[in-house]
Computed example of a mutant assay.
Amino acid sequence: MTSSSLPGTAKVTVVDHPLILHKLSLMRDVRTGVKEFRELAGELSMLLAYEAMRDLETAPERLSTPIQDDDFPMLSGKKLALVAILRAGLIMADAMVRLVPAAKVGHIGLYRDPATLKPVAYYSKLPQDISERRVFVTDPMLATGGSAVAAIQTLKEAGAQSIKLMTILSVPEGIAAVHAAHPDVDIVTAAIDTGLNDHGYIVPGLGDAGDRIYGTK
């Protein structure tokens, strides 16, 4: 695992655990079908969540084991919210909620205009108490960064103050765009690829995550 940041900027954490690297390589493979791709995306998301949530607060709580009473760590502090950028971010949020079932789930709908590559908003539904929660934004691909920047802005306008972005693949251009607009938002990713091609796709990447998750291409 590697982490990096510049003075005064948020942190980028690359979780390069062997299990994550293996599952990511299978996701990249053009031969991987929809069912397996979907399962891998969920498994990888849960592995990323372990690291993304490493700094969650705990507090001792008195419990009884079959042997004796003692104090044991339990989650405390702010409650959690998982916010999926539609549509591909759903697979990550759905997997992560299995780890934190008490978390509330929000959705932000954005699509990328194929001509301008700019995000276009079409839907937003967030927990009413979003300002009181630690928010984890999910989107498998951080490419140009436009969708992530717009989604984070929507969250901030709704009152969110503690936001972390979780992605499966990122590129330097997307990371730079997010941190230029939101220097307070940490990013957790499985890998940082080379860059973008002329169509705004990550290279070498894994193709269009949404299409491969839902079998729409």
Rank of each mutant, 00 (worst) to 15 (best):
A121F: 03
V135P: 02
M141I: 14
Q161V: 14
R98Q: 14
I168H: 07
A150C: 08
T154W: 06
L169K: 00
P127E: 01
A160Q: 03
V135Y: 02
Y123W: 03
V83Q: 04
T144R: 01
A103N: 05
I175M: 06
M96G: 08
K118F: 09
K125R: 15
S162F: 11
A103F: 10
I130P: 05
A177R: 13
A190W: 04
T154R: 13
Q128E: 15
S124E: 15
A180P: 00
V178H: 04
M96L: 13
I108K: 00
A190R: 03
T138N: 00
P101F: 08
E173F: 00
V171F: 07
V100F: 15
Q128F: 08
I152Y: 07
D129Q: 08
Y111S: 05
V120M: 14
G106F: 00
T167R: 01
T116A: 04
L165P: 12
A158I: 03
G174R: 01
S170D: 12
V135L: 08
T144A: 07
T167G: 05
E157T: 12
A176P: 13
R133E: 08
S124W: 00
L90W: 05
S124T: 13
A95P: 11
Q153V: 00
R112Q: 11
V185E: 04
L142T: 00
L86F: 06
I163Y: 06
S147E: 04
H182P: 11
S124R: 12
K104V: 12
T116Y: 09
A102E: 14
E173M: 02
A190T: 13
A190D: 07
